[in-house]
Structures are given as structure tokens and as C-alpha cells.
């Protein structure tokens, strides 16, 4: 049997995906029978589809992480709350220890808040505590930058560099040593001419590099990522775009 019109890739896909009626199925099968090259190509594409399932179907058997299950267990709002506020509210719950007592400013948008990263949470806490400090925001000032870098590199056990944020108008104020879950962490603070401050919180971190992730509290936005051997949290009371632009300055690409 020879179909009147030739069978194209879309027909083959529709056949593979169960989108054809019986008549069309017969036409495609006849075509494949008569066209071994198309049949071989079809078999390869179908094998890709099977391989896709082999690759990701194991996820279906995994336990659902606690963080996700908890969301579904939270009591539902009794009256309709505008979209965004409810998301913000759950974020507020998680950050209550950090954010209690501060003025609530309108924060809405489609930005995801990756709230379950305790590391970012601690860094935001440190930012909030120290960036608002007028007299002693840092332990070692920018005038002793070399000493600062040597000292913090030694304490973190890995080479730490002070990022150059001049391109975005921020200059170094200085840095300090902090405890991050009983491990040393470094906090670098920067300021622009308008007096806005951003901090870069760094700790030693082995493992796989990650993409940039966003966290947000009412007080500040943060971007965090792992670029082994260090993990970074960039925090500031800035918009996401501006913060991501700064993060891009800090990020050290792997050798290409």
C-alpha cells in the first residue's frame, strides 16, 4: 500500500505519541514498511523517548521532600487572599526569627523564594545585623585589604578573594569573620555612593556547583550559589536584577 501523500516527521511523531486514528496508523505503518531509512530514524527517535523515561522515571519512586509536603499541610486561608500575599506570608513564617519586628514593605511578584536554604537564611541574618551597623560594620577595613584577605583565607582554609564590584558602583568597606554553624565564614561589605550596602557571605563548600538561586525576606534580597570550593550569598536591599548583575561580577567562571 502506498499512501497518496508522503509521511513526514510530524506524522511519525503523531504515530509514536498515539495521536493518530486507525486509518492514519495503517498508512504510517505501511510507509515505514516501505521506507527502511525512515523506519530506522523512527526507531532511533522512539528509543530517545524510552531513554527519557529511563532517565527520569526513577524520580517517581523517590520520597517527596519534607519541605514540599509541609506546604500542602499548612492550613488554608479562610478567606481569599490576593495572589502573592499568601506566598509572601509563608516566606514570612519561615523567616520570622530573622525578620520579627521590621516594617513590612510590599513585596510582590513572581520571584521564587528559595526559603529552605538555611545557609542563605543565616547570611541574610548576618547582612541585616551588620549592614545596619554604623560605627563598627566591619572588623578589618578596606585600608587593610591585603591583611583581610590573608586572614580570612587562612581561617576558611581556602583562598578567598575580595570581589571587585566597582563596575556596579560598590566599593569595599571591609570584612569580618563569622561563625556559620560552628565553621568559619567570611563577610565582605560593600557600599555605593548612595550609602546602600551589599554583603558577600562566603564559606568553604565542596561539591557540585549550582546555578544562582534567589532568596528574599522583607528586609533584603539574596542570591546564593556554590562555586566550589566556596559557597556565596550576596545580600542587599536591592532589586533582583541589580543583585543578579552584581552576582555575575562575583561569579568566577570555570576555565573554558
Amino acid at each position: 500500500m502506498t499512501p497518496l501523500i508522503s509521511i513526514n516527521d510530524s506524522d511519525l511523531n503523531a504515530y509514536m505519541d498515539g495521536e493518530l486514528d486507525a486509518c492514519a496508523i495503517a498508512e504510517v505503518e505501511a510507509w515505514l514498511h516501505d521506507h527502511p531509512e525512515d523506519a530506522a530514524r523512527f526507531a532511533a527517535v522512539r528509543a530517545d523517548k524510552v531513554a527519557l523515561h529511563d532517565l527520569y522515571d526513577p524520580v517517581l519512586e523517590e520520597d517527596v521532600p519534607n519541605e514540599i509536603e509541609q506546604i500542602l499541610k499548612q492550613p488554608r486561608p479562610r478567606f481569599k487572599i490576593p495572589t502573592g500575599i499568601w506566598i509572601t506570608a509563608s516566606v514570612v513564617m519561615l523567616f520570622i526569627g530573622v525578620t520579627a519586628g521590621w516594617n513590612l514593605r510590599g513585596q510582590q511578584g513572581d520571584a521564587p523564594a528559595f526559603v529552605h536554604k538555611a545557609f542563605a537564611e543565616r547570611a541574610i541574618g548576618a547582612h541585616v545585623v551588620y549592614a545596619s551597623e554604623v560605627r563598627h560594620p566591619v572588623e578589618v577595613g578596606a585600608d587593610q585589604e591585603t591583611h583581610l584577605v590573608t586572614w580570612l583565607s587562612k581561617r576558611l582554609g581556602t583562598a578567598v578573594k575580595v570581589p571587585d564590584l566597582g563596575e556596579r558602583g560598590f566599593s569595599l568597606i571591609g570584612g569580618r569573620l563569622l561563625a556559620d554553624e560552628s565553621k568559619p565564614a567570611a563577610l565582605f561589605m560593600f557600599e555605593d555612593t548612595m550609602g546602600r550596602r551589599v554583603t558577600v557571605y562566603v564559606k568553604a563548600q565542596e561539591g557540585k556547583d549550582t546555578t544562582f538561586r534567589l532568596a528574599r525576606t522583607m528586609e533584603a534580597n539574596a542570591v546564593y550559589w556554590v562555586n566550589a570550593p566556596l559557597a556565596y550569598v550576596l545580600t542587599g536591599d536591592l532589586g533582583r536584577e541589580e543583585l543578579l548583575n552584581i552576582a555575575n561580577l562575583i561569579y568566577q567562571p570555570q576555565s573554558l
Binding site: I68, I71, G84, W86, P112, T210
Partner: peptide, 18 residues
């Protein structure tokens, strides 16, 4: 990327609930 993927699901479920 397990962490990024689960962050996405978490955000999506929150949005779905809202």
C-alpha cells in the same frame, strides 16, 4: 539538579495553592 528542581516544585505548589 535535584535541589533546583525541588525548589521549583515547592514554588509551583505554593503558587498553585494561592
Amino acid at each position: 539538579d535535584v535541589a533546583a528542581a525541588d525548589d521549583l516544585v515547592q514554588d509551583a505548589v505554593e503558587r498553585a495553592l494561592s
